[in-house]
């Protein structure tokens, strides 16, 4: 067996796979965050809680209603997305005209409420979700658990479908145009308030979908999204929120960077993304894919 800089290949590729998986979640979450920010002018702090709700919805569907993973993969994001729609209609839409910081504070408060309630009802220890595709393949240089491979591919497909939806379809054109000039788009006869609600629902659904995918890999727990959303903020600062493809590339890339750090200097693996953020702020303050304004 060959070795790379004294690192056994199993460890290297194993960590790279973990990095890709984390990157997949960073990409999906930062994508939703960016799309929501573009339309609503709100940084959705509730994103981590909604990711957690996706995982919980799938777990509850399985344990209480016996609904299998593949059905929950579709159902849970819809349920959580509808929850997002209600949130937007009842609260968020009343604060669009205010400074960004109020949206940030409101969604932070909502995250506290949601995570607190889940913690109160189900505790914070977490519950396992059985892998829907057990087993794996020995690739020679590493062992690939089938489900983990599936997650990476599925996340990539989801990201590309989202990109296609926004950049290449009629609905996506409405969305891009309304991000630029909502008044004019509305004066063309498009129901922009409904478009905004829909956008929030889709962004939240995307976070929940990531949560469902994460359920069999991580423990399903009330606080599983708390730290994740903070890392995703750093990812968003690094990538800039101007470009959809930028969010995807930055998300996966930073996951890989994190994985590599785990191999070569484990103590820094928690902080490396924040260090990258500091460097990007020094070198290119608008973010790697951000427009300089």
């Amino acid at each position: 067996m060959f070795e790379l800089l004294g690192i056994p290949p199993q460890a290297l590729f194993g960590q790279l796979l973990l990095g890709l998986i984390n990157g997949a979640f960073y990409a999906m979450l930062s994508l939703g965050l960016a799309v929501i920010f573009g339309m609503l002018n709100v940084i959705n702090f509730t994103h981590g809680a909604q990711y957690m709700m996706g995982a919980f919805a799938a777990w509850l569907m399985l344990t209480i209603l016996d609904i299998p993973f593949w059905v929950a993969l579709v159902l849970a994001p819809i349920v959580v997305g509808l929850f997002g729609v209600v949130l937007e209609k009842v609260m968020l839409k009343r604060i669009y005209h205010l400074d960004h910081l109020y949206g940030f504070l409101l969604t932070f408060g909502l995250a506290l409420v949601i995570e607190g309630l889940f913690q109160w009802k189900w505790g914070s220890s977490g519950a396992p979700y059985p892998s829907p595709i057990p087993g794996g393949t020995n690739l020679g240089f590493m062992f690939l658990p089938t489900y983990r491979g599936f997650v990476v591919v599925a996340a990539l497909v989801i990201c590309l479908v989202t990109w296609y939806g926004i950049e290449r379809t009629r609905l996506g054109a409405y969305l891009r145009a309304a991000t630029e000039n909502p008044t004019l788009v509305r004066a063309f006869g498009i129901n922009v308030p409904r478009l905004i609600t829909l956008t929030y629902g889709l962004g939240v659904g995307l976070a929940a979908l990531a949560g469902v995918l994460a359920a069999p890999i991580q423990q399903v727990s009330a606080l599983m999204g708390t730290n994740l959303v903070l890392v995703v903020f750093a990812v968003v600062v690094i990538g800039g929120m101007g470009s959809i493809m930028g969010s995807i590339v930055t998300g996966f890339g930073l996951g890989l960077v994190e994985g590599l750090t785990k191999v070569f200097y484990p103590p820094a693996s928690n902080t490396v993304i924040f260090v990258v953020m500091a460097i990007v702020l020094l070198v290119k303050p608008a973010g790697l894919f951000g427009q300089t304004k």
Binding site: R176, A177, E180, N181, L184, R186, A187, F188, V192
Partner: peptide, 23 residues
């Protein structure tokens, strides 16, 4: 609201033209 007015059959071309840069 303006979206309902537009749907009745009025089309508007604004002074600043309102061309979308992302389209």
């Amino acid at each position: 609201p303006s979206n309902e007015i537009a749907r009745l059959g009025i089309a508007y071309c604004p002074e600043e033209r309102g061309i979308f840069s992302s389209l």
